[in-house]
Write a protein that binds this DNA or RNA. Structure first.
Lengths: 241, 241
DNA sequence: CTATTCTCGAACCAATCGGTTCGATCCCTC
DNA sequence: GAGGGATCGAACCGATTGGTTCGAGAATAG
């Protein structure tokens, strides 16, 4: 019934090389092989999941939102869970790309950290990303692999990125950090202090203001530089006891 | 959902205006007034919700687990949501009590902080508490009040407790902190760095070992003392720009 | 004892769930 | 134009959902 789904008449068919092995089929794409239709389904699913969460969303809702018949969905995906997993995959990639795109600058150490922190906090406390995290956390009991992959592609890569940066700063003599991995953990949590968990639990209904974020990040960087700043920190002085 | 209006057929109508003030009913308890039965229902509901999450749990499951008929449940609670909210109320209280019970000591500053941190991290990254948090976060979109109250009674009170402690330490001259509220935020997030989010996302399937927790907490306290420790920190040197 | 009343347990409700099937139809390729 | 394959759309499936009703039976109070 004249949906917009047949946007691409017939081009774009061999866009995706048929997975990773040779696709022998000479004509057509084979059932469930049209990447445009796949994207269309995923986009509808994304909207529905974001609006209603995983359990409350029904396949019929997705059908309606995507403008695709239920039978077709089940040709492309083997059920709601697989659809959700595929969606997470896409989502993570784009989320991380957003962050990467936002930090390509050659700032000096302190400013670079602040800039990175502001981007990070702004992104992962934004409404859509918080909603996505709530959904993933909510199903983490039933689908731990999904949750774990989400963490690995998201927060873990963010921390790895931060560790790289810290390593560079240490090498350049701008920082003096005995354990950059630990430091990356600490700093990224400091960035989020007082914002992230409130947001997750819906105890902070609105997105945090840019001022709040900036104030938080600067406080974190200050604390961080006092501890790990150039000179002034002798490592051997570990805990008493 | 949304049909609570015709709940009472005609009997038991004066059961609930007893509320928290004097219940005038001289004999019997009135429908839905037996605290033991209420407790029994809540206990069954707790087990079911913990095992299956909010959406996946059905009232029939709770019926079965609690050993109570469905009709009775609907006498005590107006549906699954209300049952869940009541459950959260109980749960928060007991969780916080656990933490309080674990920190009544007169240790010196640094050791006291470590002890507090270990108790805190151990508690809120434990399997049952993590599961509870996942469930609450998962429904935070649909029931933001529940999530917000959970946060206020949990993390927020924990941070308030920590702030109190820091205030005492500052007064005693053991610490030099310009903003103890911010510092409490920072320290409590530092305690959890590298553990909490992994656990939430199921990226760390097992409860963290006591060694890991202790190592993390000590690192946090070290960092904290370097920044806020006695002397050696001149406050006026705030951030540039 | 009788009268009261709370709970049980099962039947019942309409709605919806995820998932399957199948003929009609559309579009592409030849 | 003809043939073939992918998609549509709707009916259909059994199971289950949150929620209601009601009579039988247990327990208590007078």
């Amino acid at each position: 019934m004249t949906r917009e789904n047949k946007a691409e008449p017939g081009l774009s068919d061999k866009a995706e090389e048929c997975g990773e092995v040779a696709c022998l089929r000479p004509q057509r794409l084979g059932a469930g092989q049209d990447p445009a239709k796949r994207k269309q389904i995923l986009e509808g699913a994304r909207r529905v999941f974001m609006r209603m969460g995983f359990d409350a969303a029904s396949v019929n809702d997705i059908t309606r939102e995507a403008g695709v018949s239920k039978g077709t969905i089940y040709v492309y995906f083997n059920g709601k869970e697989e659809l959700f997993e595929a969606l997470c995959e896409d989502y993570r990639a784009s989320m991380f790309a957003d962050l990467m795109a936002d930090i390509e600058h050659g700032l000096s150490g302190r400013d670079a950290l602040v800039k990175f922190g502001v981007s990070l906090v702004t992104l992962i406390t934004s409404e859509p990303v918080i909603r996505a995290q709530r959904i993933v956390i909510g199903v983490a009991d039933r689908m731990p692999e999904v949750g774990a992959r989400f963490y690995e592609r998201g927060p873990k890569r963010g921390k790895a990125l931060l560790k790289e940066f810290l390593d560079e700063q240490v090498a350049a003599g701008h920082l003096d950090i005995p354990d950059t991995e630990l430091a990356a953990h600490q700093l990224s949590e400091l960035f989020l202090a007082g914002i992230y968990r409130q947001r997750l639990f819906a105890a902070m209904p609105e997105e945090p203001s840019a001022e709040l974020i900036r104030k938080n990040v600067i406080a974190a960087v200050d604390l961080f530089f006092i501890a790990y700043g150039p000179r002034r920190y002798q490592n051997g002085k570990s805990e008493d006891k």
